[in-house]
Design a protein around this nucleic acid. Structure first.
Length: 501
RNA sequence: GGGCCGUUAGCUCAAUCUGGUAGAGCAGUAGACUCUUAAUCUAUUGGUUAUAGGUUCGAUUCCUAUACGGCCCA
């Protein structure tokens, strides 16, 4: 077969379907596009499922539906099929003696997976199922590849991720996850727009990577002969916009981090970042509470949700602890009076197997102890506040206690979901913090930030007191769709290269 | 990066432990059947057992490596 594709998975089932397609080509246009549907399956169900057999019979409602044939049951001179469209499925009854001459014989050769249009009259079967009694039927697109088995569907995880289109055809639960994802993102936009936030787009390619502690992907601009980095965060650009006078901005878009892949991490992931001038981190804790409750209501119609056997309650005020409080809570033998003592912390951390590097100060070690001993306990919605200045190079120092910043992270089901702080708007302090990052980088820290001269220049023009917040959209969607893996909420998750030979 | 598990027909799964050249259902093909719901009934096609080596008279099965995937850990 000359149009045989390169994939080395041709089999007799595909060959048989190619034969059927070439017969369609001989009969005329095998890929017609002249007809238009009148109704979606679900519209018909909503409108007529409650009608009884006799009244539908009297009304003689004609309709045209279109979609993929998912079920085919042939019984001699009549058959039932099911058509699946974007809204759902509807049954169709094909009768030899009702259809144009010869069409029923042709129909018997059509395969499950083919895309059809059907015109007919609505009726109810003896089992009260709304069905289209076909007067006309046409194959619009011949499907050359057999769909997975109708009862078990597509179960293989790898195929579900690599060939998401097949997963979406076969698994309603999978379609529902992505519908919920879209609904959540749409809700967030409405929520922010109604508070006069302005959605913006900032560069994806940065000449200085910044705004987060992470390893970037590198790329190269040929014409300008210049190295660029895919962004690890939009933060520094969004704050430049606040300097420029856009006092409430947000961006929902992709970040790229050159790190491992896991059930929680994909190299590209979606982040919401928002900034509001004349606000502080406490205002944004309130915003996070309201946002979480709003999403919970709109998706689950409840303030209590189930995630992986855990019950999560958003109705009560979210718990708040400082990082030092929560470290003491889950490490009963740590002495709170020594919690900033470098030697004490080093000894304590090494005993629990944390590798301490030479440039670690007490703040960094606290954060390591927190990650190892506290994070997984934070099941109920919890804010952890007062992050060490040492690990928060873009956050405003606390007025009373400069060891920590006015920063929080938000945890649910043992995972970090959001990170917010009062922004550091003292350009001289920011320049000093960048210098510390640069010195960490030269000490071998691959994730340390670079010195961003233009960002300092922007701060020198004056950034008003501002609060900032980042929320990982993928993890948020995981929580509200009860998904165990980030791959389940990404339409096309990262996969290693498939070998087609 | 480390550990454990997996990869058999288009799909969902057997057979592997205890080595003797692979079975079923669905899908396909041919036939029967005008209210099915995983429709039913009869017959039947379809496999380089992920890839490459090794052990053996003989490997889907045992061993090694590789690729890809899943889960856990860093």
């Amino acid at each position: 077969m000359d149009n045989k594709n390169k994939n080395n998975d041709e089999n007799e089932l595909i060959t048989e379907r190619r034969r059927k397609l070439s017969l369609l080509r001989e009969q005329g246009n095998a890929f017609p596009n002249h007809f238009r549907r009148s109704s979606f399956a679900d519209e018909l169900h909503v409108e007529y499922d409650s009608s009884d057999k006799e009244s539908l019979e009297k009304l003689q409602i004609s309709t045209t539906v279109a979609g993929r044939m998912m079920v085919k049951r042939v019984m001699g001179k009549a058959s039932f099929i099911k058509i699946q469209d974007a809204s759902g499925q509807i049954q169709v009854r094909m009768e030899r003696d009702r259809l144009p001459d010869g069409l029923y014989q042709d129909f018997k050769k059509w395969d499950v997976g083919d895309i059809l249009n059907i015109t007919g009259i609505l009726f109810k079967t003896n089992t009260n199922e709304l069905t289209v009694l076909a007067d006309q039927a046409e194959i619009l697109t011949k499907s050359l590849r057999p769909l997975p088995e109708k009862f078990h569907g597509l179960a293989d995880q790898e195929t579900r991720y690599r060939q998401r289109y097949v997963d979406l055809i076969m698994n309603k639960e999978s379609r529902d996850v992505f519908l919920v994802r879209t609904k959540i993102v749409s809700f967030i936009r409405t929520f922010l727009d109604s508070q006069d936030f302005m959605e913006v787009e900032t560069p994806m390619m940065h000449s200085v990577p910044g705004g987060a502690v992470a390893k970037p992907f590198e790329t190269h601009h040929n014409a300008l002969d210049m190295n660029l980095f895919l962004r690890i965060a939009p933060e520094l650009f969004l704050k430049r916009l606040v300097v420029g006078g856009f006092e409430r901005v947000y961006e929902i878009n992709r970040n790229f981090r050159n790190e491992g892949v896991s059930t929680q991490h994909n190299p590209e992931f979606t982040m919401l970042e928002l900034y509001r001038a004349y606000a502080d981190y406490e205002d944004f804790m309130t915003l996070v509470e309201n946002l979480m409750r709003g999403i919970s209501e709109i998706i689950h119609n409840s303030l209590t949700i189930q995630y992986q056997e855990q019950s999560i309650d958003f109705s009560k005020p979210f718990q708040r602890f400082t990082m030092e409080e929560v470290i003491c809570k889950y490490n009963e033998n740590i002495k709170s009076e020594d919690i900033r003592d470098l030697n004490y912390l080093t000894e304590f951390a090494e005993k629990m197997g944390i590798k301490i590097q030479a440039n670690y100060g007490p703040g960094k070690i606290q954060a390591e102890i927190f990650d190892k001993t506290c994070e997984s306990h934070l099941i109920a919605p919890t804010f952890i506040c007062a992050y060490p200045t040492e690990i928060s190079p873009l956050s405003r120092k606390n007025d009373k206690d400069p060891f920590v910043t006015d920063r929080f992270e938000f945890f649910v089901s043992g995972r970090e979901l959001a990170n917010g702080f009062s922004e550091l708007n003292d350009s001289e302090d920011q320049a000093q913090r960048f210098l510390e990052q640069v010195s960490n980088a030269s000490a071998g820290d691959e994730e340390a930030m670079s010195f961003d001269h233009d960002y300092i220049r922007a701060l020198e023009y004056g950034l008003p007191p501002t609060a900032g917040l980042g929320i990982g959209i993928d993890r948020l969607v995981m929580l509200f769709t009860d998904s165990a893996s980030i791959r389940d909420v990404l339409l096309f998750p990262y996969m290693r290269h498939e070998n087609f030979d």
